[in-house]
Nucleic acid binder design. Structure first.
Length: 446
DNA sequence: TCTGGGGTCCTAGGACCC
DNA sequence: TCTGGGGTCCTAGGACCC
């Protein structure tokens, strides 16, 4: 918490939808929904006209269509959104060099880091900023909050939304927070909200009755301590203008689940290629390749492999992703496949050898044959073998090794059920005899 | 016709080293 | 025969955010 209200949060109103309405006058005043247009799409942004019908971000497109069938459904033009965003971010940087974008449509600004910040002229500064944004972007509107901390600035920008602003006078934070639902606190989502409800907490003020130790006990040390502080308005998080990327990933949800392994292999290659290209474009390299799969029942798993050194080579990333896919059970088909890379560095290991070359000839990376292998599955289990009884539900148990059981599994009730993953030490896995291994299973990794 | 795609941060267990 | 702690790296999963 700072002594003055010097942290500003700006949020563009219904950003994607507003850009569409700006560029297509026929859409003005009408419900506009931007998001995934396919069978499995979700709403990214709904215009205020569409929100009147209960359409919200993250809602499935199917539900949005049934709530507001007469809306315009658009898949989005990200180049246009990026262009508008750049204009707004540049305007913010004129206020202060300390600008931290959170996404295309949102940013924090530390006004105190600006050259001639005058707290007494704050209302004028905010009004000028908002009218400049509208003028420079040809009609987009922004909501602005200013307060003594990030937490309060962000909450404040919601208060007069859309096309409004709110300044939190220092000292009034707690009384503003007290009646608000606990979900306004950063990091408190549906799961945490449910846990808190169990101990009688639904508003921010309710949290005050609980000690830090109690909250840590309930939510873990980081979340507990953070909630304890933030709920009291105590927040000294800095605005940081250069945040480094930690990972790059590409994923795709299929219109219908894909079973064919050859097809999945090709898709995996293409996702890995895209990830590698984006990595290089950002002049980065990474060490850990992660494969992500999602099954028909929405259960999601990741498999990762860390290379000896950072790379940005398509070939190596594709190869590694393939190995991970090969070691993954795709039996019942996949709804999503993704390839990511993390452990980022702004250098490539091959660069170490670049200085050794005499001229400017491009250094071709050595073909890397020594990719750390995903070990062959261990055939510890055999068909017909008695295994364990899964207390809840039927299905395959998937992935022994790295603590996961990989037996394909049947129960008395269903020959083959939904895919399920359990830890080898999962209490649901009770030694018994109700299950039968229907296929040899193996171990991945040692 | 439930549930995108891009991320971040945290937790937890096991391996391994000292 | 029994059994330390601390630190770091790797892997996997989950919650959360826009």
């Amino acid at each position: 918490m700072r002594p003055t209200a010097s942290i500003l949060h700006l949020d563009l109103d219904a950003f994607f939808a507003s850009v569409e309405q700006r560029d297509k006058p026929s859409l003005r005043g009408k419900p506009v929904i931007v998001g995934g247009i396919g069978q499995r799409g979700v709403v990214s942004t709904a215009s205020y006209e569409a929100r009147k019908f209960g359409v919200r971000s993250a809602m499935s497109m199917a539900e949005a269509r049934s709530r507001c069938p007469h809306a315009a459904f658009l898949s989005g033009r990200f180049d246009a959104y990026r262009a508008a965003s750049r204009i707004v971010m540049d305007r913010l940087r004129a206020l202060s060099p300390a600008v931290e974008p959170l996404s295309l449509d949102e940013a924090f600004v530390d006004l105190a880091a600006g050259e001639d910040f005058d707290p007494d002229r704050l209302p004028e500064l905010v009004d000028e900023l908002r009218s400049d944004v509208t003028r420079l972007t040809d009609g987009l509107t922004a909501s602005v909050g200013v307060a003594s901390s990030k937490l309060m600035a962000k909450i404040a920008s919601e208060i007069e939304k859309p096309d409004g602003s709110f300044i939190v006078a220092p000292g009034t934070e707690r009384s503003l927070l007290e009646p608000m639902p606990i979900g306004v606190i950063a990091g408190v989502g549906p799961a945490t909200e449910a846990r808190l409800r169990h101990i009688g907490v639904t508003t921010v003020g309710d949290v005050w009755r609980h000690s830090e130790a109690e909250l840590v006990d309930l939510l873990g040390s980081a979340s507990g301590a953070s909630l304890h502080r933030l709920s009291r308005g105590m927040d000294d998080r800095a605005v940081s203008s250069h945040r480094e990327n930690k990972s790059v990933s590409t994923e795709d949800t299929f219109e219908t689940d894909i079973v064919d392994r050859a097809e999945l292999g090709l898709i995996c290659d293409s996702l890995a290629r895209k990830t590698a290209e984006r990595l290089r474009r950002a002049q980065l390299s990474g060490r850990t390749v992660t494969l992500k799969v999602r099954y028909h029942d929405f259960t999601t798993h990741t498999r990762s492999l860390t290379l000896p050194g950072p790379t940005d080579q398509t070939r190596l990333i594709v190869q590694t992703a393939r190995r991970l896919l090969d070691a993954t059970d795709t039996g019942g088909g996949l709804r999503l496949l993704g390839v990511g890379i993390s452990g980022l560095a702004d250098w490539v290991q091959d660069d170490l050898f670049a200085e050794d070359t005499a001229d400017d000839e491009p250094v071709l990376p050595e073909p890397v044959e020594e990719v750390p292998a995903v070990p062959e599955p261990r055939r510890d289990w055999s068909p017909g073998m008695d295994v364990h009884h899964v207390e809840h539900g039927d299905g395959w148990v998937w992935g022994r090794g790295m603590g996961l059981v990989t037996v394909r599994f049947e129960t008395r009730h269903t020959p083959v059920g939904p895919v399920r993953t359990l830890r080898a030490d999962d209490p649901d896995l009770v030694p018994g005899h109700a299950g039968t291994v229907s296929q040899p299973a193996g171990t991945v990794g040692e």
